[in-house]
């Protein structure tokens, strides 16, 4: 009975593991051991993304998905506990843990939408969600109704653009890509706080993916939600 399946993924993961150990031995830096995460996650990640699919059968893949979900939930709980603990201690590094939670959940939500594979429909949803999120966070610190409206305006404009995305996919795709790049440059150039980097990632990356998706979905004008033809 073999414990490990000796396929190319096994040898790649073993190589990463050995490199991590060798780097640790040379540098004596524990951070080198973090490379082992790559060795551990190589099989499920390659299987999920496609290239490693032939080395994992459907039951094993389903186990990877389920254990991944549970592992992610545990990670969120641990991050939340550490974040709350540090916040109560007055230690501002709690922001790192909250950022990890936000990025993890945003990535999951984004991939949930992208993996459905209806680019035009989903890009529109992503743009509207990001727009509404921006609008919501913009009004948090504002007291007057007029101030709220003005603060929420950029987010509402993005959401409105998202509503038009299905009708004019290529034009809106280009507009969104330009907007995403501009937003990221703005956030990363003028304010270099850690929170701004997270904001740039959470706002910019989904918009960029949505914009590129829309642009390419506009090239073929097939409508996927039509009734079946008998």
């Amino acid at each position: 009975m073999t414990v490990f399946k000796k396929d190319p993924i096994f040898w790649c993961a073993s190589a990463i593991f050995v490199i991590a150990l060798a780097l640790f031995a040379i540098t004596n830096q524990q951070s080198c051991l973090l490379l082992m995460i790559g060795a551990y996650l190589l099989r499920p990640v390659l299987a999920s993304l496609g290239p490693g699919r032939k080395y994992v059968d459907e039951r094993q893949l389903s186990i990877h998905y389920r254990s991944g979900n549970i592992g992610f939930a545990v990670l969120l709980i641990v991050c939340a506990i550490f974040g709350v603990k540090l916040e109560f201690e007055g230690n501002h590094t709690f922001e790192y843990f909250y950022s990890a939670i936000i990025i993890g959940m945003a990535a999951k939500a984004l991939f949930n939408v992208v993996l459905v594979k209806n680019l035009r429909e989903n890009a529109s949803k992503i743009i509207m969600a990001v727009g509404l999120l921006v609008a919501l966070f913009s009004i948090l610190d504002v007291k007057s109704p007029l101030g709220m409206l003005i603060s929420a305006l950029p987010g509402l404009v993005i959401a409105a653009i998202g509503m038009l995305a299905k009708k004019y996919p290529r034009v809106i795709g280009i507009v969104i890509v330009v907007l995403a790049i501009a937003a990221m440059i703005f956030l990363l150039t003028f304010r270099k706080r850690w929170g701004q980097v997270i904001t740039a990632a959470v706002i910019g990356i989904p918009l960029l993916i949505a914009g590129i998706g829309l642009f390419f979905s506009g090239q073929n004008s097939d409508v996927t939600d039509t009734a079946p033809v008998n």
């Binding site: 389903s62 979900n69 549970i70 939930a73 969120l76 709980i77 939340a80 939670i101 959940m105």
Partner: peptide, 18 residues
């Protein structure tokens, strides 16, 4: 986040596919 954690736990308990 709480909803996600609860659904993950339910997913774990209700091992489908029998």
């Amino acid at each position: 986040m709480i909803i996600y954690i609860v659904t993950s736990i339910l997913d774990f308990i209700m091992l489908g596919g029998l």
